[in-house]
Amino acid sequence: MSTTDTTKGESKETTSGKELVSIFVMGKKYEVPKNLTIMKAMEYAGYKYIRGCGCRGGICGACGTVYRKPGDYHIYVGLACQTVVEDGMYLTQLPFFPANRATYNLEAIGSDPEEVYKKYPELFRCVACNACTKVCPMDISVMDYISAIKQGDFEKATELSFDCIQCIFPFENYGG
């Protein structure tokens, strides 16, 4: 069993006796204990987070991470605080991803797909490629809830999208 320094409440593992795996943080190789999350593995490697770390419990959306595995053409997306490292994993965090966001007054708009069209015309160009669902780190059926909006079924859309943690942030005139 490994020795652990617990002086700061969070378990922090030391190298002795741990089975290590290699991960590539933005292309640079680090040896980290297997079974760590990406977040703790990067801290183990010596990174200190300013961006890309939030609740550390899978609900705030700060730590979206894109990764690939050796010999696999897929691009994977997960939360760094929830995803366990794998040997040979290449990863980069996406602490900010610019998103289009409309301004609205809830009292003044109806529950009509037309209103959504005015705010987000791009949704109506959907060809059902399902890439949105595949990149969602919360496993939300994004394509299905977008479809529900287009069909005017806002209740269904709300239910399907309820676990959304808004891991992308708007870029409107908002920040100081």
Partner: peptide, 24 residues
């Protein structure tokens, strides 16, 4: 679970992307 049918059938021979919606 259903999505938009694709609205208009694409006549471009290599435009398979627009077939995804109806096939789903």
């Amino acid at each position: 679970r259903w999505n938009c049918c694709g609205a208009v059938f694409s006549l471009a021979d290599d435009d398979l992307l627009h077939l995804l919606a109806p096939v789903r």
